[in-house]
């Protein structure tokens, strides 16, 4: 990469567009320079694409707490500003009408979901974890060796999590005594 980033280049070319529209063309046609770029005054945060494992760096532009644009990060030595169709569509992942935004519960035999609070959901899950763990915990195997495991609870996931979350998750599950700990790397 040279000394000029793509963002600076855009700013520069925008400036020259303003100049040219003033100095050369004075007819009252639509001035594109007057159309505000949607990333103007937006906050930039860098991220890494959540899809494949190339690790493309992206710039997430936000305004008023909302993602307004997503672009490839020109500073990244890996993708140098490019993105594939999936990466380029991250805007629609961030602003997505299909996301579930409240915890849901489906009771035995129920035909529909029910909205529930986090407090209720997590407390109920904790109770079930404890009940299942306490009932099925294996302290020793048939040879009398300490094994301290529970086989009646299993966990899968996830390569979609951050490293720190993956670390916490296996720490939590192993503390509970789980041995069935897997995720999509296996398949």
């Amino acid at each position: 990469m040279g000394g000029i980033s793509r963002r600076n280049f855009l700013k520069l070319s925008l400036g020259s567009l303003v100049l040219s529209s003033i100095s050369i063309d004075l007819t009252p046609v639509k001035s594109y320079a007057a159309t505000e770029l949607k990333i103007k005054n937006a906050k930039e945060s860098t991220s890494i694409c959540p899809y494949c494992s190339v690790g493309c760096s992206i710039i997430v532009y936000t305004k008023g707490g909302k993602v307004v644009q997503v672009e490839g990060d020109p500073d990244s030595p890996i993708n140098q500003g490019s993105l594939c169709p999936k990466g380029a569509s991250l805007l629609q992942m961030a602003n997505n009408p299909y996301r579930v935004t409240e915890p849901l519960y489906r009771a035995p035999g129920a035909t529909e979901w029910k909205k529930v609070s986090w407090e209720w959901a997590l407390s109920e899950i904790a109770k079930r974890v404890k009940a299942t763990r306490d009932k099925y915990f294996i302290l020793k195997d048939e040879k009398g060796r300490v094994v301290n495991r529970v086989e009646a609870i299993a966990h899968v996931g996830s390569a979609a999590l951050d490293n720190e979350e993956c670390y916490l998750l296996q720490k939590l599950m192993r503390a509970l005594g789980l041995v069935y700990i897997e995720h999509q790397a296996r398949i």
Binding site: S47, G55, V60, A94, D162, N163
Partner: peptide, 29 residues
């Protein structure tokens, strides 16, 4: 129980690409 979580741009942390490169993601929203 369905627990709705945050997407990759809604939290911070690192992820490791295929080349063993751990890169940091910042929370945007």
């Amino acid at each position: 129980f369905f627990l709705p979580c945050a997407s990759s741009v809604e939290k911070q942390g690192s992820i490791t690409n295929s080349g063993r490169l751990a890169q940091w993601r910042y929370k945007a929203v």
